[in-house]
């Protein structure tokens, strides 16, 4: 099971500067030209499902507008799985 991630962009803060779009190593971010934030910016959005949740977009975001989530596969605890090394 692959590592998957996703982001949420808060329209209250996003100013559509596009720095996250340029920084994204997976190239899954775009500015949403169909939509305006309350302040009148085109906000960033995730357009592909291949986000890894690396968090680089949030690191470069000047407005702390991005929350980053990641779903990581976890093995069950070793004890429960009955394995010892």
């Amino acid at each position: 099971m692959a590592v998957t991630g996703w982001i949420e962009v808060d329209d209250l803060y996003c100013k559509g500067c596009g720095l996250c779009v340029d920084a994204c190593p997976q190239d899954v971010l775009r500015l949403d030209m169909e939509r305006l934030t309350p302040k009148g910016y085109h906000p960033a959005q995730m357009t592909e499902e291949t986000c890894t949740g690396c968090g680089i977009c949030a690191v470069v975001c000047p407005d702390a507008a991005i929350t980053v989530y990641r779903k990581t596969p976890q093995r069950q605890s070793r004890k429960a799985a009955g394995r010892r090394t």
């Binding site: 808060d10 949030a58 989530y69 779903k71 596969p73």
Partner: peptide
């Protein structure tokens, strides 16, 4: 057995 766990990688700091 593999299960998925959701982590918050980044969120807005409380001091902001």
């Amino acid at each position: 057995m593999v299960e998925a766990k959701t982590e918050v990688i980044y969120q807005r700091p409380e001091s902001f």
